[in-house]
Design a protein around this nucleic acid. Structure first.
Ligand SMILES: NC(=O)c1ccc[n+]([C@@H]2O[C@H](COP(=O)([O-])OP(=O)(O)OC[C@H]3O[C@@H](n4cnc5c(N)ncnc54)[C@H](O)[C@@H]3O)[C@@H](O)[C@H]2O)c1
Ligand SMILES: NC(=O)c1ccc[n+]([C@@H]2O[C@H](COP(=O)([O-])OP(=O)(O)OC[C@H]3O[C@@H](n4cnc5c(N)ncnc54)[C@H](O)[C@@H]3O)[C@@H](O)[C@H]2O)c1
Lengths: 212, 212
DNA sequence: CCGACTTTGTGCGCGCGTTCACAAGCGCGT
DNA sequence: ACGCGCTTGTGAACGCGCGCACAAAGTCGG
């Protein structure tokens, strides 16, 4: 399964859920592609990696597709995640309702600041970072979210890896060094802004050269 | 300039700034590549798109590279951004200090909820969404951040586009429909988690087949 | 039952991006 | 001055992913 396809499956899944809520039972590749912001050929090729679940002349059954994509993504089970760093961003993440809907459960909130231990955030008590090993073992955690400042991110990452966590989502603006069997995905706001800045800059330059 | 290269330039820039703070004045492609999590050949090819600013046998001058990458990304000027949707996530974004450092200024906070108008968040008053056109004109806003629920995102997006904003960073889990001269980048947390879920799932399946 | 229409699944060619490998270039020690 | 070692910049090969285009396959109306 191509990595590029995997990255798009969640988008399709969301579009399908939205369609299901409107009562649609079937959808064509063209319609689903438009709703997902991709071309229809690409969509069909992506779906073909899951098997042949479409009906020629009709399209795809919405529920069936939801099931197969969910299964391919491993969403059959509920994944437990641990959130490290309950600051500005961490609190927003803890209070976000969009996790539960999609099969993810925040098992615990950890922070290095002892002054915050015991504080309730979104119904969960903040625990000390030193509890990490216990949390991972007891709660069956397999995904770690890092929302600490950049300075502490690598250390937190190393601890997660030492506890057996092999999937990490990193919000700190750092490139984490990990063993090759560990997956790290970065969400970096400033990066995104700078990429937008580049294009905005380019557009402005073009408008300069060709004013009318 | 290849899009893939543009997406990596901010990463190099951050690594360079970190190096500069340690007092390093020059850096080899090998060292910078490791710090950025890429291969050295890829790094050199990326940098070659900016010009030839390295010295053979020595490496790159850190400050000089910072300058050239910043210029290529259009970071010479301060970009004004408007944040729409000051909820859970919006507040975290408003309070984030990482914008100013990198040349971005939050010009205004907008929300549809009249009950919150005037409330101060991170030193800025929340204004009504209907002020959007004024804000964009008066503050020279060129980038919009959407942090509203998915249901309102497309409407907000349309308003931004109508006001002349051509670069949008979307945190809502929706695919926005925009004219082709508008750039939209998505930051979707659930997407990232589901991609991690896929790999975790796959790793677990492999461990099952080959237990030892 | 048949023919027209719709939509899937995919073979194929192409273009972009990555990687390898090395010649050219620069500094430094002698 | 000169050669040695290090590092850049890049040509060339490779591989992946994208989009086109179409045959296969199914539906639906008559
Ligand atoms: N706030 C945002 O909107 C935003 C946006 C993009 C990126 N980020 C990034 O997310 C990260 C967190 O941002 P924030 O605004 O929440 O910062 P913050 O300072 O508000 O919160 C950081 C929290 O992490 C805790 N912490 C510090 N070191 C730790 C460690 N080693 N182990 C465990 N916990 C530790 C602190 O006690 C604090 O509670 C930063 O790296 C920031 O760059 C934040
Ligand atoms: N909280 C998180 O950590 C998190 C993580 C990932 C994604 N998101 C996404 O970010 C978005 C915001 O999440 P949140 O947790 O802050 O939600 P929230 O409900 O806390 O805040 C939403 C804010 O947007 C305002 N709003 C609603 N409709 C609006 C409109 N049409 N125009 C202007 N403002 C409007 C509301 O008044 C509210 O203040 C959602 O789409 C969510 O899926 C949030």
């Amino acid at each position: 399964m191509p990595e590029a396809t995997v990255a798009r499956l969640p988008v399709y899944l969301r579009a399908l859920n939205a369609l299901a809520e409107t009562g649609r039972t079937t959808v064509s590749s063209e319609a689903l592609a438009t709703a997902s912001g991709v071309g229809s050929a690409k969509l069909r090729k992506d779906l073909s990696h899951l098997g042949s679940y479409g009906t020629r002349g009709v399209g795809y059954d919405v529920q069936e597709l939801v099931f197969h994509i969910s299964r391919a993504l491993g969403l059959g089970q509920r994944w437990s995640v641990v959130l490290v760093g309950v600051g500005n961003l961490g609190q927003a993440l803890a209070g976000y309702g969009g996790f539960d809907d999609r099969g993810f459960r925040i098992a615990a909130l950890l922070d290095a600041d002892p002054a915050r231990t015991g504080e309730l955030v979104a119904g969960l008590p903040i625990r000390l970072l030193s509890d990490l090993a216990d949390v991972v073992r007891d709660e069956g955690v397999s995904i770690g979210l890092i929302a600490t400042p950049a300075a502490g991110a690598q250390d937190v990452c190393d601890r997660l890896v030492a506890c057996g966590v092999r999937s990490i989502l990193n919000f700190a603006p750092t490139v984490l060094q990990v063993p090759e069997d560990v997956d790290v995905r970065r969400v970096d706001l400033s990066n995104e802004l700078q990429i937008l800045s580049f294009h905005e800059h380019r557009k402005a330059a073009e408008a300069e050269v060709v004013p009318a």
